[in-house]
Simulated assay, not measured.
Amino acid sequence: MNKFFDALRSVSFRRGPSRWVGGIAGGIAAQMGWDPTLVRIGVLLSFLLPVLGILAYVVAWLLLPWQDGSIPLERLLNGSR
């Protein structure tokens, strides 16, 4: 499992430092050079899609690393906060 989490950390994408809920939209905006507000609106609009928008956000929240490199799913599996 460590190889999986190390592979996620090797991707340059991180949750955004300017985050509201989980930092997913802020991370997308920072990586692409877009306005965070527009990305947040796009994420909210994706929630209108049946199951897909919310499911994609939850998966991204579990798997995308924070700025310090920690991954929420890894922390959950290891039992740490």
Rank of each mutant, 00 (worst) to 15 (best):
V51C: 14
A56F: 10
R9E: 03
R40L: 14
I28S: 09
P50H: 03
L8T: 02
L52V: 15
G42Y: 06
R40Y: 10
G53E: 00
M32D: 01
L48I: 13
Y57E: 09
M1Y: 08
I71S: 03
W34E: 13
M32V: 12
R9Q: 09
P50W: 00
V11G: 05
R75K: 15
S18M: 06
N2F: 12
F47E: 01
L48V: 12
L64Q: 12
G23M: 11
V11C: 10
W66P: 00
G23I: 05
Q67E: 13
A56N: 11
R75E: 10
P36R: 09
G33W: 02
F4N: 00
I24N: 04
P17M: 14
A60F: 10
A56I: 12
A25F: 06
Y57D: 09
G79F: 03
E74F: 01
I71C: 01
R19W: 10
T37D: 13
L63F: 04
L77T: 08
V39L: 02
R40A: 15
A60M: 12
M32N: 08
A29F: 00
G69V: 04
G26K: 02
A56Y: 11
L77W: 11
W61I: 11
D6A: 09
Q31A: 14
L52P: 04
A30C: 12
R14H: 07
V43P: 01
A56E: 00
R75S: 11
L63Y: 05
P50T: 07
V43M: 12
F47P: 03
G33K: 05
S10L: 07
Q31R: 13
A29T: 05
G22T: 15
F4C: 10
D68Q: 11
G69Q: 06
L77C: 07
P65W: 07
V59I: 14
R75P: 08
M1C: 11
L52H: 07
V39H: 04
Y57C: 08
I41N: 08
M1E: 11
S12F: 09
F47L: 13
G42S: 04
A30D: 14
V39W: 04
V43F: 03
M32A: 13
L55R: 10
L62G: 11
S12L: 12
A30Y: 03
E74C: 06
L38Q: 13
M32H: 10
L62E: 08
V59F: 05
V39P: 01
R19M: 12
I71A: 02
P17Q: 15
V39K: 03
D68C: 00
R81V: 15
S80D: 13
R15I: 00
D68V: 03
K3Q: 15
A7F: 06
L8Q: 07
R15C: 01
L49N: 13
M32P: 07
